[in-house]
Design a protein around this nucleic acid. Sequence first.
DNA 1: TCGAATCCCAACTCGATTGGTCGGGATTAT
DNA 2: ATAATCCCGACCAATCGAGTTGGGATTCGA
Lengths: 137, 137
Amino acid sequence: MRISSRCEYGLRAMVYLAGRSGADPVSLSTIASDEGIPMAFLERIMARLRDAGLVVATRGVSGGYRLSRATAEISVADVVAALEGPLSLVGCLPDDHGCDRSDGCASRQVWRRLDEAISDALTGITLSDLTMEAVTR
Amino acid sequence: MRISSRCEYGLRAMVYLAGRSGADPVSLSTIASDEGIPMAFLERIMARLRDAGLVVATRGVSGGYRLSRATAEISVADVVAALEGPLSLVGCLPDDHGCDRSDGCASRQVWRRLDEAISDALTGITLSDLTMEAVTR
DNA sequence: TCGAATCCCAACTCGATTGGTCGGGATTAT
DNA sequence: ATAATCCCGACCAATCGAGTTGGGATTCGA
């Protein structure tokens, strides 16, 4: 179970933007070179973040990306959900399709718990937390 | 981020064995048919669990698998680690290779926190918890 | 009006992983 | 012996991850 590069890069880019929040939009090439991320790949990542409504792009000469909301209003969970897809660990949680196995439910509780643990951990951190030089532990 | 079938099947098999703990070994074919898992695939899974020291196999006519330890001594984290590999979210946590990026550390704290949350959630549940008909929440 | 900077997008590659299957061994109780 | 069982390496198809390529469409400034 490993975080994808997509997700790692995406969060880095968002933290980067959070550090420049309020200023002019930042171009793809700037983010990519400052963060050491392959530009064409970052482009795909930003497209997802845009589609999720987390960043706003402006095109043309001095265009670029900026955050769509205040840094305190964007959680890491938002970013991860936008990049990793639905983010539910096992298929049968929402639809609850029967659970015909006797111990299937027992195992499933594990995945549900884990789901909650992950969710709790990620929704509790916002980009503004990350721009301050230390996550309080 | 999704749990693999391998892992799902593996935990189901372990819970199954936990429910019969202390009795005769259970054959692959029995587990597979009772749990609805493709037998040849389950065989590969059991091999990993055996290599991890979580189950013991005996061959020959009335052979099969049994747990190597008491159900309370096997955590879900043990099972998942045996089946999912190293289970660390991002490569640079143990070796800490520089962190030359300015905000790399900020993002990394997120992954470390998440790592802890997952680890805590999984080490806290043992097979004996799962054989009782309800995980206390 | 032209061109450069910028975002937008679909298609492609390439290797690893997932989810299996297949075919034969080696062991052991009866 | 023989049947039941685990053991194991090889194989396979589909998907996913991590990018790349090549071209658009927009917008600002000169």
